[in-house]
């Protein structure tokens, strides 16, 4: 029985890391499409979403099977519950990547906008948050998960700065308001994707330590600093 539940959990972990990899790839491509004005890459992302949707269903089924047939307790139970939540987070994130790609396709057909350096920085931050949150999940690393949560403040700050610049630019170039709104749309999706990575981080901390830190991350942070590792 113990061996079986271990095998089942390993399979679930592998599938969820597979979904994570696909989301990572979709985000990479959609951001490259946005930054390099590459419409072909953008369309690739839009066409690949179905795979994630199918895998989401598979993982959910596996989780429900384990709950029903193996009746996991303690940490095993937390892992299954955590993955159920992360699963739907990831599916949503894949949709957000598709939204970014859609905006990128439109933007590749209009003259370039002048925000490239800052968009690059926000993109790099979001990509790192996603990578770290997925790493913290497969390695069950609560300290890494906490660093994801901390990085969100930086992502928010970059996002607010960019929106400020965009508003300024629209004032000066009213003829380009339409184009800028597409960029703002892409950025909002990116910022929300980063928020989802903090959800994953919170669930990982719950899986590892059995503490619900959602909405209480600040207090957890103090402890994580006191006892690293």
């Amino acid at each position: 029985m113990t061996k079986q539940i271990e095998d089942d959990l390993a399979e679930i972990n592998k599938r969820i890391s597979h979904i994570g990899g696909l989301v990572e790839q979709a985000l990479d491509k959609s951001l490259e499409a946005l930054l390099e004005r590459n419409a072909r890459l953008a369309r690739e992302v839009m066409n690949s979403d179905k795979v994630v949707d199918d895998l989401e269903n598979e993982v959910e089924e596996l989780c429900l099977n384990v709950l029903a047939l193996r009746q996991p307790v303690a940490r095993d139970l937390r892992v299954v519950c955590g993955i159920l939540k992360i699963n739907s987070d990831l599916e949503r994130m894949a949709d957000l990547a598709v939204n970014i790609a859609e905006r990128a396709e439109v933007l590749s057909n209009v003259p370039p906008l002048p925000f490239r350096p800052d968009v690059t920085r926000l993109a790099a931050t979001a990509k790192r948050m996603l990578r770290d949150s997925l790493d913290s999940l497969v390695k069950q690393d609560a300290v890494l998960a906490y660093s994801v949560w901390k990085a969100d403040a930086e992502a928010d700050k970059l996002y607010r700065e960019l929106i400020g610049q965009a508003i300024q630019f629209m004032r000066e170039h009213p003829d380009r308001i339409g184009d800028v709104m597409h960029l703002v749309g892409a950025l909002r999706n990116l910022e929300r994707l980063a928020d989802h990575t903090t959800n994953i981080a919170e669930d990982v901390i719950f899986m590892v330590g059995g503490r619900i830190v959602r909405h209480h991350m600040r207090e957890f942070g103090v402890e994580a600093r006191l006892e690293p590792g």
């Binding site: 390993a10 592998k14 890391s17 597979h18 994570g20 990899g21 696909l22 990572e24 790839q25 997925l134 497969v138 390695k139």
Partner: peptide
């Protein structure tokens, strides 16, 4: 070690 813990590579996985 399980390869997919350190490396996320969806194409290889599939």
């Amino acid at each position: 070690a399980q390869w997919w813990i350190e490396l996320r590579f969806p194409e290889l996985e599939q």
